[in-house]
Amino acid sequence: MAKYILFMRGSSAGFREMAPEEIQRTIQKYEDWARSLMSQGRLRGGEKLKDDGVRTVRMDNGRIVMDGPYPETKETIGGYFVVEANDYDEAAKLAQACPIYPYGGTVEVREIDPDNAREQ
């Protein structure tokens, strides 16, 4: 089985208008999703990233510059999950069941390169 990272990307802009009940329901959906991944033995971890201090370092006209912090309307990676799957399609299927989508979020599915060279 290969390992995959699911990058959870979205913005919290719409969260301000969510009713408490709706927030609770959404958290419950994440709970259910995580539980279903666990019961299939697929969940290998996950971390939340801090929301503040999102900056991008890049080169601009030969100088290193820093962009950000960005307003909360900007989409950022809020966190990631690590799952195990037989192949990419299966990993993508696991990601499809994530409750992030109704709120404008997306999931980027990436296989972790197993680094066979070092193991040999």
Partner: peptide
């Protein structure tokens, strides 16, 4: 890595009733 999220260690109690509503009030 990998820290297994709390949810992964043991099934947590589901959120009961209207907890968020009541707590918000």
């Amino acid at each position: 890595m990998t820290t297994v999220p709390a949810a992964a260690e043991a099934p947590v109690e589901s959120l009961v009733g209207n907890l968020f509503r009541h707590k918000a009030g």
